[in-house]
Design a protein around this nucleic acid. Structure first.
Lengths: 253, 253
DNA sequence: CGTCTCCCTTCCACTGAGTGGAAGCGACGT
DNA sequence: ACGTCGCTTCCACTCAGTGGAAGGGAGACG
C-alpha cells in the first residue's frame, strides 16, 4: 500500500489509480510527462493507460494537450455518500443562512484529525477564505474545527492538541488554552475564531446534532465579531436545528 | 470500445472503469454480486478488483457489506473543470439570485442532447423539482433546456426534435410547436415552461453568454408564471450578465 | 438439527494482456 | 541544418491477471 507503484507488486489497478490520484488541488491539469512522473510510471505505460482513461471519460484532454479530470469522474464522485445524505439535506438551510447573514457559510465534518469541508457558500462581498469544498484544514484554527474537536473522542483531542501548528500570529498553539476553549464551546454551544486561520477573518460555528450526537458543524466567516454575534449565533442555531431535524427525519429509511 | 467488458480485448483498465461506472443515480450502493453483474465481470475478478479499489479509497464498504463510491473519488471528482470554472464563478451570483427570487435556482450546460445540471439552490419553501446536481434531463421539457437547445447547433436540434418524449400532459411533443418556441426564445432572450417537466412547477430561464456565445443557462423554478414574470426575467438577466462578465474576465489565464 | 441456498472468499495452473526499452515523429529553438 | 524536448508507436518477453472450481459461513426451511 505504502509502496512504490512501478516496482514489483504493482497491479494495473494501482497504476490506474496512481494516475487518477496524481491530480490534486494544486495540480488540476497535468501534461503526460508530469502525470507519468507523479504516478511514478514509465512514460509509455502512462501514455497507454491515460488513453484508456480519456476514452472512458475519467480524464479529458484539453486542446493544449494537458490532461484534466473528466466529467464522468465528476458524475461518479457526486454519488459518494458524503454528499448524498448530509449535504443535500443541509443545502436549503445553508442558503437560508446565507440569506440571513450574507457571510460565507461552511458545512463541515470531522475526518480523522482534520476538518473536511462538505459545502461552502460564498457571496460576492464575503471575506476571502482558504477553505474549498472537499478541502481539509486543521481543527484547531477554524470555527467548525473547534466545534467538531470539542465533541470528538478523547483520543482525537489528544492527537490534535499535541500538534498545534501556528498558522497566523493569532493561532492558538497552547494546548491548555485550547482545551479551556473547548470546554466553553461545549457549555455555550458555539465556537469562535479571531484571525487564527487567516488574517482578517473571524468565524462563528455551531454543532449540528442528531439525537444529541454531533454529526457535523455549521459555521460562518465574518470580517469581525464585534457586532451581531448574538444574531449570528441565533441564525446558526436555527439552521443547525433545522438540519438536525431533517437528518433525523430522513433516518426513516 | 463499445464492446463487452469481459470478452476478449478487454483491458484491466476497462474492467476497473466498468466497476466504477456500475454506480449511478439509481444504484448508489451495490453488493459484490450486483457489481459483478452490472460490470459484466466474473465474480472472483470483481472481488479482487473491488478489493484494490476499496484499499485506495475509490470505493468503500459499508458495514452492511454493500459498496458505495468512496470519498477519494469524490475528492478527485471535485477537481474536474466542470466545477472549477463555471460553477465556482457562478456560485455567488446564484446565491444573489436566490436571495432575490427565493425560487429554486439552476445552473446548467448542454451535454450532448441533454441538459446537465451543474448547480442547484433550493430553498425550503421552493417547489419540489426532479433535478439534482450532476443529473441529466431532456432538453425539451425544461426552461434551461429550451434555452440551451435554442442556441445549439442545428444537428443537435434535429436529434432532440425527433424524439420529444411525453413527461406530463403538458409536455410539448409537437416538433413544430417547439421549433416555434425556440425562435421566440432567441428573439426574446428567455424561455419558459409550464408544468412540462413536473406538475405544479413552472420555470423561467435565460442564456449565459461570453462574447455572444451561449455557454450555459440559468433558470428558476416557480409555482406559477402569472405574476412577477418581468421581475424574474430581469433578475435572471442581471445574474447571467454578471456570470458572463466574470467568465470573460477569468479567461485572462 | 440437518440441509439447502445464496453470497462471499480463497486457491492456483494456464496464458495472453501488460510492460517498457528503444526507436520514430514533429514542433520549436538556435 | 542540427539539437532538444515531449509525445507516440512498436514489439518480444514474461509475469500479472484470469476465472473455474472448491471452500466457508450466514440465514431460511422442514
Amino acid at each position: 500500500m505504502a509502496g512504490n507503484v512501478s516496482t514489483p507488486g504493482a497491479t494495473v489497478t494501482s497504476r490506474v489509480l496512481a494516475l487518477i490520484g496524481a491530480f490534486d488541488e494544486q495540480h488540476r491539469s497535468l501534461s503526460l510527462s508530469e502525470l507519468a512522473e507523479r504516478a511514478e510510471l514509465p512514460l509509455p505505460t502512462a501514455h497507454r493507460l491515460v488513453g484508456e482513461l480519456v476514452q472512458w471519460g475519467a480524464l479529458s484532454r484539453r486542446p493544449s494537450g494537458e490532461y484534466v479530470v473528466g466529467r464522468r469522474l465528476w458524475d461518479v464522485g457526486l454519488l459518494a455518500p458524503v454528499q448524498t445524505g448530509l449535504r443535500q439535506l443541509a443545502s436549503p438551510y445553508l442558503h437560508d443562512l446565507y440569506g440571513a447573514t450574507l457571510a460565507t457559510v461552511h458545512l463541515a465534518v470531522r475526518d480523522g484529525a482534520e476538518v473536511l469541508y462538505l459545502d461552502r457558500l460564498a457571496g460576492n462581498a464575503s471575506v476571502p477564505v482558504v477553505s474549498a469544498i472537499g478541502s481539509r484544514l486543521p481543527m484547531h484554527a477554524t470555527g467548525v474545527g473547534k466545534v467538531l474537536l470539542a465533541h470528538a473522542p478523547a483520543e482525537v483531542q489528544t492527537v490534535v492538541l499535541s500538534d498545534l501548528r501556528r498558522i497566523t500570529p493569532y493561532t492558538i498553539t497552547q494546548p491548555g488554552t485550547l482545551r479551556r476553549q473547548l470546554g466553553r464551546v461545549r457549555r455555550e454551544g458555539y465556537a469562535t475564531t479571531v484571525e487564527e486561520m487567516s488574517l482578517g477573518a473571524c468565524s462563528v460555528a455551531v454543532p449540528v446534532r442528531v439525537d444529541e450526537a454531533v454529526v457535523a458543524a455549521l459555521g460562518i466567516v465574518v470580517p469581525s465579531l464585534r457586532n451581531d454575534r448574538p444574531r449570528h449565533v441565533a441564525a446558526l442555531q436555527v439552521a443547525a436545528q433545522g438540519i438536525g431535524r431533517a437528518l433525523a427525519a430522513s433516518r426513516a429509511d
